[in-house]
Nucleic acid binder design. Structure first.
Lengths: 211, 211, 211, 211
DNA sequence: GATGAATGAGAATTCATTCAT
DNA sequence: TATGAATGAATTCTCATTCAT
């Protein structure tokens, strides 16, 4: 094995811990996650996790924050550059979907946070959510005024978008475990995630466009 | 105080245990739930739970099964009686929404199950899900052939419907805890749940109707 | 084994835990004490200790408080009844010595608290100490005014009394472990504790009496 | 900054480690002391402590030994030079007090050792204690035979002396933390340590002198 | 039917110590 | 000489579950 510098080893260790934590949190949630298991998957001693400054809570918070700030950052920038509400809505959906595609552990974690009432969600992430809701509300306001959108409750649309993306992603993961699925259903589930974003986008736009 | 028969006391105890369990599982999930807490809320001794309902797993399974079989039973019956795909889709959405309305703990539990890959979902409930997916698939097939539906992936529509209902319900619960929400957003969240079903239905129908 | 009622068993368990805790805290101090060891000596499962409401801190605090309030109670009462400062001083010393005789774990615990700056001393016990110092100060004031006492710093006298009692008690415990003690020294150490109180009293009175 | 030789740096490092260790051991005892904390206060890396002084036990032993051998050496020498038992007793007390004055961490450490039954006391230090007890025993024997001392148990006198010095020193440290002390008591505690030795000496001599 | 007492098997976290550079 | 990285072995505390009455 090629020798690596101390710095590289450190960085690698941290990265492995983070990867493992994402996996485990996604699989079994915050409460269900075991530090032992994270350490094992990261290939480090359990104490290493604490040495690197993280107890369970901060490990979790770090992961959430990373994803949220990245996603929100992209959305703020790209939606800001969008021409017209329809384009902006496309961008909005596209970016949410991209996050799920890049970080497959996100749906599990987010669904659990929604389930628990955001118990373990760091407060900074809560602010990110508020901003996200603000953005889609603006898109709809603009759409109703200038663009061709019907009047609709943007939060319901938002939950349908996010719900569609998150739940479909989970359905894809869960389906192999579910026995008795007919072939046809399996094929429908096998849709790839870019495709999902496109289909969701299409459905949403049809739903909100003025005739 | 009027004396109650043994039978009545027994039934009452079981009912209280079930109510408490639903609450706790919804609040903190399966892993996070504590038998101690359930016992406390039910006003019974911890040992009583084992004496009655069995262990944590079966307590959970019982709750899930109750809701699933009830919901699926309704849907099978009423969708079967529906006239045409549009009517059937309305009934489908309406019944899902009704379950959430009657059993406010359902969204939390379901989202967690989706998150965890149905780890704790009893196998009988898995069959129920398969049947549910079968039903919506049929509605869309019929809609594409005879009715006025466009070709669409019914699973994506299903996840948008369910996602919309479940996530919006959670958003309503979580929102008081989230600081910094603008008034306008709070108003939009305050929509009542029947209304939500109607709005979801309307959006979905617009999305899937052929022009 | 004779069957005992639930209440008796409970009381017995609590008593055994308390005894064991006193032993262990005395032997190795608060920091050194292991819950495992306490449980083992008490003949109960480790979890029992927590079931009975005590974590390490409260277990310790309970023990301290018991001894302090008992001792101070006796001293306040009996010193109050004493005739003249000399009698009161005898009573003061006698009662401190009695506590050590009845509760052999006290010297270890108190010396450690003095060493650590009362880190683990419950605040109520701190108040007890303040009162104790108040009492001896009054005895000396009265002694200087009315009785036949010389002017002396009562706190120094107090520390010599308490130091003598506590350290001598410890010397008796430690001496068997110390190799190389000459016979004569061993004999001197073998003095019993009532005797110690008497000798301390005699020395102190000689030291403070006006010629 | 002037460059220092390797030797100087090494010596300085060792000195800093020793100072820090004394502080920490005094504050929280052997069990409570953390190598991390010692390293931090010494301004060195944790591994340095092992590289230099060995492990926790030997670090502790080194500190104890230093103080003990120094104190005993002084006492042996100066008591040997003393004229008559009264003078020797003065010297004995004076030297014990001097050690406490020079090494403020000693009372805490010694009280803890007494508390724990000398668990962590290196065997060489145990021999020092035996010699110390021998010396005071001899002073009293001489005093009873030739000088003007009454018959008294020298070990009890020793514990009163040592107890007075150690406990009063601790009382001074602890008192700022204790709320509710009356002004008068605070003033009495504020006595400086040389003064304490003088007062203890005076009290002891009055107590043991033949009338 | 109901419950207080009790426990085995973990769970997170800490810490003295060693390793590799 | 000096140190950051890493870990094995505890340690406190928790919790689902069983037992005895």
């Amino acid at each position: 094995m090629a020798k690596r510098s101390l710095k590289e080893r450190k960085a690698d260790t941290i990265r492995r811990i983070n990867e493992a934590a994402k996996e485990v949190f996604a699989e079994v949630g915050f409460e269900g996650a075991r530090i032992d298991e994270i350490a094992k998957r990261a290939g480090v001693n359990k104490a290493m996790i604490y040495y690197r400054g993280g107890d369970k809570v901060s490990l979790y918070a770090g992961i959430i924050h990373e994803v949220f700030s990245e996603t929100l950052g992209r959305i703020v920038k790209e939606v800001g550059e969008g021409k017209g509400p329809e384009d902006k809505l496309r961008t909005y959906i596209h970016n949410l979907s991209m996050t799920v595609e890049k970080h497959p552990y996100v749906p599990s974690i987010m669904l659990r946070e929604l389930a628990s009432g955001a118990t373990n969600l760091p407060s900074i992430a809560q602010k990110d959510i508020v901003r996200l809701l603000g953005i889609i509300t603006e898109i709809f306001e603009e759409g109703a005024k200038r663009g061709g959108f019907r009047r609709a409750n943007p939060l319901i649309v938002h939950t349908m978008i996010v719900g569609g993306i998150l739940l479909f992603s989970r359905l894809q993961s869960v389906s192999p475990k579910i026995g008795g699925l007919p072939k046809r259903t399996k094929e429908l589930i096998g849709t790839d995630s870019k495709d999902v974003a496109d289909r969701v986008t299409e459905l949403v736009l049809r739903a909100v466009r003025r005739d």
